[in-house]
């Protein structure tokens, strides 16, 4: 399998604190890759480093490399805007911007100068269909996005990322506030999506990782404990910490 993202000896400093410690990881193309770990283990930080959202905090510093198709995204001269188009992010709470449904999905394409009503409308419709939201909202594209239900809002956020034509989607506990039905709709979308994109997800629990992911990584206190095929890690983890976490003894 082709490697989409390769993390090489990544360390991440928040002020004096080292949040990620010398982490190396390979994420293959067209898989769902779960990154598990209890709170404060560095999972969110790792995700945010992959598309340099971590840059937003000026008191941070990285060491090591994050290669996307072999190119270091942490390099100084990287076009961050283009990087974030290629590597989209969905957050742990639904985050519609205070705009209409349509304008939310069209946000990214408009930034890149997608002109023409037809081209934009097609792009929005395609993204909403892929995110399994089209049927819910096709008659009310102009209502405020905030008026949708929580699950719909989160699918809207996925559609918003899809409208950019991303290669990688990062999802940081995307189902944490959602009911089981919404959760399963999102999981179904992700499974369909991996045919065209690489999905990196911090699942909101171990069961979700087991349901949807091809590979899992387990992080603890900023270190990678182990990484491998989901089945293998779940059935016969190499490390005690991993098995304790997976069986729910802590975390």
């Amino acid at each position: 399998m082709r490697v989409k993202i390769e993390v090489k000896n990544l360390s991440y400093y928040f002020g004096q604190e080292r949040v990620i410690k010398d982490l190396s990881l390979r994420i293959p193309e067209n898989v769902i890759f779960s990154v598990l770990g209890p709170a404060r283990s560095g999972v969110t930080t790792l995700l945010r480093t992959l598309n340099r959202l971590s840059d937003l905090n000026p008191e941070t510093r990285t060491e090591g490399e994050v290669l996307l198709d072999g190119e270091d995204v942490l390099a100084k001269d990287v076009n961050v805007t283009e990087l974030r188009r290629r590597v989209g992010m969905v957050f742990d709470v639904p985050t519609p911007l205070p705009l209409s449904v349509y304008d939310n999905v069209a946000y990214g394409p408009r930034l890149r100068g997608t002109k023409g009503r037809k081209a934009l409308a097609d792009c929005v419709e395609g993204a909403l269909r892929t995110a399994a939201l089209w049927d819910d909202v096709k008659d009310r594209l102009n209502v405020p996005a905030m008026s949708l239900s929580g699950g719909q809002q989160q699918r809207l956020c996925i559609a918003r990322v899809l409208a950019q034509g991303p290669e990688v989607i990062l999802l940081d506990r995307p189902c944490s506030g959602l009911d089981p039905i919404s959760t399963s709709k999102i999981e179904d979308s992700l499974i369909r999506l991996k045919e065209s994109v690489t999905v990196v997800i911090a699942p909101h629990n171990v069961q979700q990782a087991g349901r949807i992911s091809d590979r899992v990584a387990f992080m603890l206190m900023g270190r990678l404990i182990e990484e491998g095929e989901t089945k293998k890690v779940f059935v016969s983890p190499e490390f005690r910490e991993t098995s304790d976490y997976i069986t729910g003894r802590f975390g």
Partner: peptide, 10 residues
């Protein structure tokens, strides 16, 4: 979070 979202969309 609006700022994060907007930045994350490039």
């Amino acid at each position: 979070i609006y700022r994060d979202v907007s930045f994350s969309l490039g």
